[in-house]
Design a protein around this nucleic acid. Structure first.
Lengths: 180, 180
DNA sequence: AACTTTGTACAGTAAAAACTGAACGTACTG
DNA sequence: CAGTACGTTCAGTTTTTACTGTACAAAGTT
């Protein structure tokens, strides 16, 4: 029984699971596997090493690594003496979680708040107007109510993300179970 | 100036924003638009009405509606006198948020916990073995540490989802800003 | 029971996304 | 300054995903 091989098999299975999980969050399998590989690799890696390890093109490694750094799941590290870029996985998954959802959710929140706010204003102007059909006015009023509810939800989500970024969420749900 | 047309324009813009937002969460634009449309439509709709409204095939409506009901973003309602299935949008976005992430995250969590637990056991057995290389043993030990950290993260995430499902999260982040 | 109406499975097609290799620009090296 | 090593851009290709139309099964109607 070859221990090294066994270790390799275990790693690969876990990497596959990590990739599948990230896939659930809208990240490609390849990018997920890249992250998983970096996670278990105990030293920073170059693009060429990744390419070698995954049997993919350097172009893919470059774009995948960019995606992962944008999500703060991977960071570039500097090392004296090498001209190649070196990358390593962010190992703290609490941090990864916070960054991932902060980045994703914030983008959607601001977009939606802007659209809703603008639309509410427009419909309120419309509803005030004398010259419109009573039926349209009623519909506009219903829409305004819905959008105000949506707006209040987005404000709540914003506060949730705040609590992630400030790590206050850990006061409410402690990292360590025993602290409960 | 036609009020009805203006209302329509506002709705369409908001629907597009909703779709774009859902897209961020890994839902296709079409399905997002379908949800948005149902959200503003104040009565339950049949597949044929949706098909008509969106100019898509009935097959697409059927599968899209299924996706949305699986995510609990849309529910089937029953109405006397019609043979057609009727669907309406879940309007409470707090609820939608909770259901969406509970469903998505739980799936990943259990998968990962299972994989990690199994792998930790295997590596612990490997690390204890006399007949393996010292280098492999060291690597296995590092991996065990990493996976235990991952496991603790997944347990935390599980508790976070618990707080969503029990709605205790609203004690920490109240729905209404003023309750703070 | 025959005839409708309705939703869905399935196979084929169209559209989108992932991936690659060649070419390029930048920055380091001698 | 020429030469080399590196990462990225871009156009083309492959693979995957979304979408459609036909065919079918289930349930309702006469």
């Amino acid at each position: 029984m070859d221990g090294k091989e066994q270790l390799e098999r275990v790693r690969e299975r876990v990497i596959e699971t990590i990739a599948k999980n990230m896939n659930l969050y809208g990240i490609t399998d390849s990018i997920g596997r890249l992250y998983g590989m970096l996670y278990f690799h105990n030293h920073p890696m170059t693009l060429d090493e990744m390419k070698e390890e995954l049997g993919m093109s350097k172009t893919s490694m470059s774009t995948s690594v960019r995606t992962l750094t944008d999500l703060k799941m991977v960071e570039k590290v500097w090392k004296k003496g090498t001209r190649k870029d070196l990358y390593q996985a962010e190992e703290d998954w609490y941090q990864t979680f916070i960054d991932f959802f902060s980045i994703k959710w914030r983008a959607g929140i601001s977009m939606n708040i802007a659209a809703m706010t603008k639309s509410i204003l427009e419909l309120e102007r419309l509803a005030k107007s004398e010259e419109i059909d009573e039926e349209v006015r009623a519909a506009a009023k219903i829409d305004i109510t819905k959008m105000k509810a949506a707006l209040s939800y987005y404000e709540w989500l914003n506060r949730l993300v705040d609590s992630f970024e400030s790590e206050e969420i850990f006061d409410f749900i402690p990292k360590n179970k025993d602290e409960l």
